[in-house]
Design a protein around this nucleic acid. Structure first.
Lengths: 107, 107
DNA sequence: TTCATTTTGGACAAAATATGTCCAAACTTA
DNA sequence: TAAGTTTGGACATATTTTGTCCAAAATGAA
């Protein structure tokens, strides 16, 4: 899987290399054609459940697809911010801080 | 400024070291007392405009406070995700990719 | 070119989420 | 105790997201 692609681009190429139509895939995933089309264009979001379905349907690693999805969300969120890289660096420290805080509070 | 703190904790200590009450600060910022209290407890979000006001009022670097705010949002978003660190790493690559894409499309 | 299929974009109501505002209970502290 | 402060919840309103449908545009096979 190429992480340089956006989540939508990833889903689209998973479909296209299999020569399937939006209808083929959307009906299997039990969602609207139009919704899937928008997901491929990053115009709509996908739920966790849908990501799981997609990874199962295309037989790709769910963890990897999930990472691809979340990182996309974060990246788009910071796209127009000037200090994106710094934000990410601080965020990483905070995640560690929060994880530790939680595990301390747990016992 | 200590980035290990959450955004709310940061705002709270900015207020407390000056020995001001929520009422003092909220009235200057032109927001509800309760809203400010919740912001300090990370139960409500702050708008960009409000972040600017806060940084001006406490006379701290707006950029830094803004980074503190955004990184917090990202961190909370990933708090319950198992692969937070990997997500952030991929997100960083994507941000760079998007920035390059944009600057290429611009000319 | 025509016809069927596929993709895309927009409209819309319903559902979910966020925000502004107020109030009262709980907590501090003088 | 009494005043001032903080906290949590309720609530209407505003904003955003979601599911669904439809029609126009694009594709492509005959």
């Amino acid at each position: 899987m190429n992480n340089k692609k956006t989540f939508g681009e990833t889903v689209k190429s998973l479909r296209e290399v299999r020569r399937l139509t939006l209808k083929d895939v959307s009906s299997k995933l039990d969602i609207d054609i139009s919704t899937l089309g928008k997901i491929e264009k990053n115009q709509r979001s996908a739920s966790k459940e849908l990501i799981a379905k997609i990874s199962q349907f295309f037989n790709v690693d769910e963890k990897q697809l999930h990472i691809d999805f979340l990182s996309d969300k974060v990246a788009y969120q910071l796209e127009d911010e000037r200090y994106a890289t710094e934000v990410l660096r601080v965020a990483e420290a905070k995640v560690k801080y929060l994880k530790q805080k939680d595990s301390n509070e747990a016992h």
